[in-house]
Amino acid sequence: MQSFEYANPTTVQEAVGLLGAKWGQADVLAGGTDLLSLMKEHLHTPKRVVNIKNIKELEGIQKTADGLRIGALVTMDELSKNSDVVAGYKLLADAAAGIPSPQIRHMGTAGGDLCQRPRCWYYRQGLGLLAMKDGKSLIPDGENRYHSIFGDGPAYFVSASSLGPALVALGAKVKLVSAKGPREVPVAKFFVTPKDEASREIALQPNEILTEIIVPAATVRSATYEMRQKEALDWPLATASVALTMNGNTVTSAKIVLGHVAPTPYESAQAEAALKGKTITAATAEAAGKAAVQNAKPLSQNAYKVTLAKVAVKRALLEAAKAKG
């Protein structure tokens, strides 16, 4: 790990003043579950590390008339157990609870979950976010069993965020603060597919901190279903977060968002359309699953993920139909 300056601000105002204008100048430290390994592997070599754990205003979950405000420092464990989240936003509680490592649930934060870097092993082995060699990505002809099944590249990594799909399904926004002031960005637009090696996979700028997640009030039936091979520490192979607005037993509108299958959370308009006006049955859930992967373009080793994504949608829908919140 390269030597760095360590800063301990106690206010957001102070913290944003310590950030750089360009990536590489400063990194924000919250739970540290990703940043420390990035630094040890020399994938991030910040000159300054800005620890935000002492900033009280970034803590806590507040229920307001407009919905929920989730502080960036809320841990995944808190999120999975918070009564307002569990009661009204089951898909979000499911997504946080699904992280199998107790250490990561207790250390990892909501803000960090959204800002973490991809787990793509080419990236983690120092071959770049897009793993380009001689103008071509290594991934289509390489070891791509855990990679993207949607899109045409050049990014083939999958978004590592557990909360992203659930927040997109809920129409949530994130608050990003720089020295110039705050801005709000829909989570659906926070995740971006980089087109070149110099870009990032999130809309956060190097001089900004993600301070808060704003979830609108909603009356939905919802669930997140994860496909994960192990009970112990493991990454999902595919997830589906679904939020259904119902009129009696009929779906008036559906939000269906897949995770770990594309460089960003992947919202399927086809699956949403397939459900509108329907009741949730094994057959309609299955059909929605099929619709969700209609545009999948699996790589050489990951056709199995198309099945997993399809089944994740089906199972999330059946679970949401059972759920009250």
Partner: peptide, 14 residues
């Protein structure tokens, strides 16, 4: 990875 000769999972994650 045959293209680069690198071991892709020398860790306890993958």
């Amino acid at each position: 990875d045959q293209q680069t000769g690198k071991t892709l999972n020398p860790d306890m994650e993958f």
